[in-house]
Computed example of a mutant assay.
Amino acid sequence: MKFRKVTAAATTALVLSLTATACGGGDGDSESGSGGSDKIKIGIKYDQPGLGLKEPGGSFSGFDVDVATYVAKELGYEADQIEWVETKSADRENALSRGDVKFITATYSITDERKQKVDFAGPYLLAHQDLLLKADSDIKEGTDLNGKKLCSVTGSTSAQNVKEEIAPDAQLREYGTYSECIAGLQSGAVDAVTTDDSILAGFASQDQYKGQFKLAGLKLSNENYGIGVKKGDSETLNKINDALEKMVSDGAWDKAVKDNFGPANYQNEPAPQIGKIVQ
């Protein structure tokens, strides 16, 4: 290509124009390795041992963290390129719609109501509402909870489900966090804690609780955990589904289950099929 001769003034103007464009960030492309952002933001829980937990030293652990890390690598990001973002239950849909995170892996049960606002990859885990008991508890059936103290967090539907379906005379104790419920179970202040079995197993697997608790295995509900992505982002959705299928086929999924829930003798369901929701 031939360039016409330009004056010194014109040359100076051209250089300044190019410099301004470069400083302005171009077209906003942020592909990893192309001079743009080399990070990916992923939403998780910070307060669920065995699933999504921020450790005292600042690191992160749990099954959701392991799944998200595997998926991120399949999307082209190493572990040190992940920026973990705390996404509490009430803010998950907003975090995706605002673009605060690329995807969310945070005990995010797939429901028809939520599917109106976000898209879900997966499911990647089938959990069930259950009870956590002391290892020497004589509670064997849900009806044995009648007259006993049952703990769940304030506002949760788990305890109400137990009272409505199997133990109407259970004495409900509502605490601010599941950590408080677990401490109450350990001290004897309550007789049982109820929420998803995966969450209960995560707590029971912690070093300070090993051997102290057991799951009742009641399977009171089906909770299909999915990975939330922004509504309409089919490209990311398809890539995540491919990553989840690979994680199952190469054994990494089974290893993550064992690493995070094994000490609680969690009888997990097999890895669910992508797109198959268990009602």
Rank of each mutant, 00 (worst) to 15 (best):
G99C: 10
D100N: 09
D100E: 13
V101N: 00
V101K: 01
V101P: 05
F103V: 04
F103A: 06
I104G: 04
I104A: 06
T105K: 08
T107P: 04
Y108C: 11
S109P: 03
D112F: 11
D112R: 04
E113L: 15
R114W: 04
Q116H: 12
K117C: 11
K117Q: 11
K117R: 07
D119F: 11
A121S: 05
G122Y: 00
G122W: 03
G122M: 06
L125Y: 05
L125A: 09
L126A: 07
L126K: 03
L126T: 02
L126W: 05
A127L: 07
H128W: 06
D130S: 10
L131T: 00
L132N: 01
L133I: 02
K134C: 12
S137I: 09
S137E: 02
I139P: 05
I139S: 05
K140Y: 08
E141I: 08
E141K: 09
T143F: 07
D144A: 14
D144Q: 04
L145P: 02
N146I: 03
N146V: 03
K149E: 14
K149V: 13
K149P: 00
L150V: 00
S152E: 07
S152R: 01
V153E: 09
T154I: 15
G155D: 10
G155P: 05
S156K: 06
T157N: 12
S158H: 11
A159Y: 08
A159T: 00
Q160I: 14
V162H: 02
V162M: 05
K163P: 08
K163L: 13
E164R: 08
E165A: 14
E165L: 15
E165R: 07
E165D: 14
I166L: 12
